[in-house]
Amino acid sequence: MTWFASPTDVVERLTATGYLADAATATTTFLAGALEKPMLVEGPAGVGKTELAKAISRATGAELVRLQCYEGLDEARALYEWNYKKQLLRIQASSGDQEWSATHDDIFTDEFLLTRPLLTAIRREEPTVLLIDEVDKTDVEVEGLLLEVLSDFQVTIPELGTVEAVRRPLVVLTSNASRELSEALKRRCLYLHLDYPDAEREREIVSSQVPGLEDKVAEQLVATVGRLRELELKKAPSIAESVDWARTLIALEIRDLDDKAVNDTLGVVLKHSSDHDRAIRELRLRK
């Protein structure tokens, strides 16, 4: 499968899904498909890393398979595990009727295999986008598993043998850079850094997602979000929260983002009371 014809094709097709990609994003996405290499997308939370994988899935019609990473994630949750309860029932049902070797061969089959995201993506014959989300939250041991899978796109199951990908998925790994990933993992990936967009780009994104927003309000909103991101907050506003704020202003029929309007709706973009207090203090908002 040819994922995209060119970087320009990436821009056009992602734009059609509502995702505005810059030149670096378009080029890296095109190369990920053309070279069949995983794409590591790194940057602060809320800049569109996960949404990029979803947009690629929508633009290409490929199925999205997502592995949400977290501390304590293990092979059983990422790759596969056996349905032990079902196996036990089969053993009990066949007890005394056949030799253990025959029972062993009977219970270690696809019927008893519970596939998790990595194995699911490898076994799929249809076009697939594999999203490995927030890979920096996993333990280092999980990276070893990812190295094996992403190097050859195959998995060895001792009881069944080696499962090799018939059609390689397009792989997107995202990271908030909460810890440094191993050089071995990075070597296997194309790298893309996403940051908060500049004011003009964010205004385009917000306006495309919220068509009814007036230009004046869009400019006020983007300028205010930019000022908020310059503060030392626990959680800076994401692009998605900018869009939510725009929809809020539409719903409340606010046509001028003055101090009162910001004060009344600040909870849409700031989710910590300390951030809320700091914003009011630093922006000198009047109630």
Rank of each mutant, 00 (worst) to 15 (best):
155 V>P: 01
161 G>V: 01
112 F>L: 01
172 V>Y: 07
177 A>H: 12
136 D>E: 13
164 E>Q: 07
134 E>I: 05
167 R>I: 10
129 V>P: 00
111 E>C: 15
150 L>G: 05
138 T>G: 05
151 S>V: 00
137 K>R: 08
117 P>S: 08
152 D>A: 13
121 A>M: 10
167 R>V: 14
155 V>Q: 01
174 T>K: 13
174 T>S: 14
156 T>H: 14
151 S>N: 03
117 P>N: 10
156 T>E: 12
170 L>T: 14
152 D>Q: 13
124 R>H: 10
131 L>T: 05
177 A>P: 00
137 K>I: 01
111 E>A: 15
166 V>N: 04
170 L>K: 04
137 K>E: 01
167 R>S: 15
153 F>C: 07
113 L>R: 08
152 D>C: 04
116 R>K: 09
159 E>C: 00
126 E>I: 02
169 P>Y: 13
159 E>A: 02
136 D>V: 13
166 V>S: 06
123 R>H: 06
142 V>F: 14
111 E>R: 15
126 E>Q: 09
139 D>A: 12
164 E>W: 01
172 V>N: 07
156 T>C: 10
142 V>I: 15
149 V>Q: 09
115 T>Y: 04
154 Q>L: 09
141 E>S: 15
165 A>E: 09
166 V>M: 00
149 V>D: 09
134 E>S: 04
128 T>R: 04
115 T>D: 01
142 V>L: 15
173 L>V: 11
128 T>Q: 05
124 R>A: 11
133 D>H: 14
143 E>P: 10
172 V>Q: 08
114 L>Y: 05
170 L>W: 14
126 E>D: 08
161 G>M: 00
164 E>I: 04
167 R>M: 14
153 F>K: 04
144 G>T: 05
168 R>W: 10
129 V>K: 02
138 T>V: 11
178 S>Q: 15
135 V>I: 15
162 T>I: 01
152 D>N: 13
150 L>S: 08
128 T>N: 03
152 D>W: 07
159 E>N: 02
123 R>N: 11
116 R>Q: 12
156 T>M: 08
166 V>D: 05
139 D>T: 10
111 E>P: 14
